[in-house]
Amino acid sequence: MHQFIEVTNAALPVLYGILFAAYLSAFLGKGEVWVRRVTSFLPFLVVLHGAYLAGRTIHLGHIPLLSRSEAMSTVGFCLAVIYLIQERQVRVREVGVFVLGPAWALQLFSSFHIQHIVLTQDPQFQGALFRFHVFTSILAYVGFAVAAFYGVLFLLLLREIESRRLGFMFSRLPALETLSRMNYRTVLLAFVLFTLGVITGTVWAIRVLEDHSAVDPKMIGSVVIWLIYASFLGLSALRRWQGRSGALLSLFGFAAVLTVFVALNFLLPSFHDFL
């Protein structure tokens, strides 16, 4: 297992690099045949990365989030997963470079700095339920970030078309309608994952924590985020708030995520401090 972890750790940045080059070519509209061939390997890369993280968890006995390098690899994996699901749905490769680029950078940093050693972890932060809560939550936050990014791309392209200065974005990005659909579907996926994360987190907290009356600022923040995205999806369904409004809402939602999980982290004490 140790050997598998070491080999995969070295191989992942190389494989992400190759995929990044292929997606960059897709964005620039070049080399159709080899791009199609190389990008078709993304599911295999995601499976390999998942096996690497699972292998670490089993071999070292802790979730791959305890060191900065581990967290980077996990976030990179989540980016690839979210992107892969969206690509399967919409069949658009032009924007892959923007998601897999950061995934590659994260994995590259991680592979160079990571140590394959056992790190001590509070026993209460173990178990399948806790791991599921953490993993779905991270996937959800990454999903919100990716959705917000699609929203930015939508607004940039819309701005080019509205201002009649058709340039780089116009010739490279997919249609506004496609970007809007990608934005909406990614929010929907992230919202489902986030809901699962909140539910499993709550169940875990009730089981493990002794003081059930404790009010955690991040839990409150999570509820606020949940309400924002629930409104987003509700408005999208009821009032056709997609397109520009959808893009702006997903940006607003992600700003709320950042506020809750960056600002609160520094300002208020929380039992989420282990993250």
Partner: peptide, 20 residues
């Protein structure tokens, strides 16, 4: 690449708004 007639230019913009 790039439309070189007025109607084609209009169609090209339409294709960047709607995907189907």
């Amino acid at each position: 690449s790039g439309a070189v007639s007025i109607p084609f230019a209009a169609v090209e913009i339409v294709k960047n708004i709607f995907d189907k």
